[in-house]
Amino acid sequence: MRKETRIAFNGYLAQQAKINDVTSATEKFTVAAAPHQKLESAIQESNDFLKKINIISVDEQTGEAILLGVNGPTASRTNTSQNARNPRDPSAMTKCPYSCKKTDFDTAFPYALLDAWAKFKDFQVRLSSSIAERQGLDRIMIGFNGTSAAAATDLAANPLLQDVNKGWLQKIREVAPERVLDHGATPGKVTIGATGDYKTLDGLVFDAVQMLDPWHRKRPDLVVVVDRALLHEKQLAAVEKGAASNQEENAAGEVIKKGRLGNLPIEDVPFFIEGGVMISTLSNLSIYVQTGGRRRHLKDEPERDRVADYQSSNEDYVIEDLGLVALVENIKRV
């Protein structure tokens, strides 16, 4: 590490110790409330998808979904000369349980990289931003691919972080299997094509909406999250049609940018599962983070020519209203 890099990095350590009210950031510490919230905000702001969902701080490590949802209509009328009015509990729905599990977000920065960044005045911001961005991407990857929470994870065997925590889709499979369609006429797959379960992907989405509770099926904020590979044929047709003229090419670009499936807007997100479709609102997806559950330890490791940032957070992935989600997976074209 160069001299100017050491000066910049020592300044970073001093700043982290100051904002967390600890003697040294090179000893393991609990991240204080204010910097913890600032980090959570930075993680959320680092990705457009994360900006649209909920990241919620919870005091308890375990519990049930906490956002108040209205499970069906509340309007009614009662003949009070014969019966008493009976208010409906708007939160009376099948709740998605949560259990915030310790998740390590450990990052190593080679001296060579820090040397390259040290010449910039925003050295500390660059370092913090890179950490927040990577943690945000990891959360999305876990949210859509996580199926278990292993005691010791294996990145080689689970490159999409499948064993770090149970994500949103796994919660649907376990808590609300009636909201999942994973096979059709052929066991183990839902087929699309001339001889398939559905002729088109649009038809599949249009039908899958029926898995939502009736009062949610015509919500204006419904979106469809879909495997990008499944969209290839639909988008390829729009691109090829647009090749005839500039005007049509621009129109084709709008078709892709503002695409719809089954009359629902497409929400393009990274790391969504292959052969899958999910219908919901983005406000129905949450990440719960336990208050006071983030630990950190910054460590210079000269034997590896790097600086390590050991961080951990207690968190989980939650579907707020299980009646407001439908999942179709194992989709194959025939």
Rank of each mutant, 00 (worst) to 15 (best):
235 Q>F: 10
172 I>R: 01
145 N>Y: 03
299 K>C: 10
238 A>V: 05
193 G>D: 00
29 F>L: 05
162 Q>M: 03
87 P>A: 07
219 R>H: 08
216 H>W: 07
251 A>F: 11
124 Q>R: 12
220 P>G: 10
162 Q>A: 03
52 K>H: 11
318 V>P: 02
108 A>N: 12
330 N>K: 03
245 S>Y: 08
177 P>G: 02
168 W>C: 00
98 Y>H: 04
162 Q>E: 05
252 A>N: 06
30 T>V: 14
81 S>M: 14
100 C>D: 03
131 I>F: 11
306 R>W: 09
203 G>S: 00
106 D>L: 04
300 D>V: 15
271 F>I: 09
197 D>K: 01
279 I>D: 07
204 L>C: 00
110 P>F: 10
314 N>A: 10
33 A>H: 11
263 N>M: 14
170 Q>M: 03
160 L>C: 09
311 Q>L: 12
10 N>S: 12
332 K>N: 06
325 V>Q: 01
233 E>W: 06
240 E>K: 12
229 A>F: 08
215 W>N: 04
129 S>Q: 14
66 I>D: 13
148 S>Y: 10
2 R>A: 13
306 R>I: 10
289 V>W: 07
240 E>I: 11
217 R>K: 02
241 K>T: 13
196 G>W: 00
261 L>D: 02
70 V>A: 13
88 R>M: 11
268 D>R: 14
87 P>N: 06
220 P>Y: 09
133 E>V: 15
264 L>D: 06
66 I>T: 14
96 C>S: 06
138 D>T: 13
11 G>R: 05
232 H>N: 09
274 E>I: 15
51 K>I: 11
147 T>E: 12
253 G>M: 08
174 E>P: 00
271 F>D: 11
298 L>Q: 08
12 Y>T: 05
19 I>K: 05
84 A>C: 12
329 E>T: 05
235 Q>R: 09
65 A>F: 03
317 Y>A: 04
3 K>E: 14
178 E>V: 06
55 I>F: 06
324 L>E: 07
232 H>R: 09
283 S>H: 15
71 N>F: 09
330 N>V: 02
141 M>Y: 05
217 R>M: 00
135 Q>N: 12
261 L>T: 03
203 G>C: 01
39 L>Q: 06
8 A>I: 07
166 K>H: 04
76 S>A: 13
134 R>M: 13
228 R>K: 08
254 E>I: 15
34 A>D: 13
116 A>W: 09
155 L>R: 13
140 I>T: 04
178 E>T: 07
139 R>P: 04
163 D>R: 01
258 K>Y: 14
322 L>I: 02
214 P>R: 01
89 D>T: 09
90 P>I: 07
307 V>Q: 08
267 E>T: 12
191 T>H: 00
33 A>T: 10
312 S>I: 02
224 V>D: 00
29 F>V: 04
24 S>G: 08
181 L>N: 04
238 A>K: 04
178 E>K: 06
39 L>A: 08
169 L>D: 03
94 T>K: 14
259 G>I: 07
277 V>D: 06
300 D>K: 14
239 V>K: 11
329 E>C: 04
35 P>M: 05
64 E>D: 15
89 D>K: 10
175 V>Y: 00
307 V>H: 08
25 A>P: 05
133 E>S: 15
187 P>K: 05
188 G>N: 01
89 D>R: 09
227 D>L: 01
320 E>M: 05
317 Y>Q: 04
149 A>R: 06
270 P>R: 08
222 L>C: 02
119 K>I: 15
206 F>I: 05
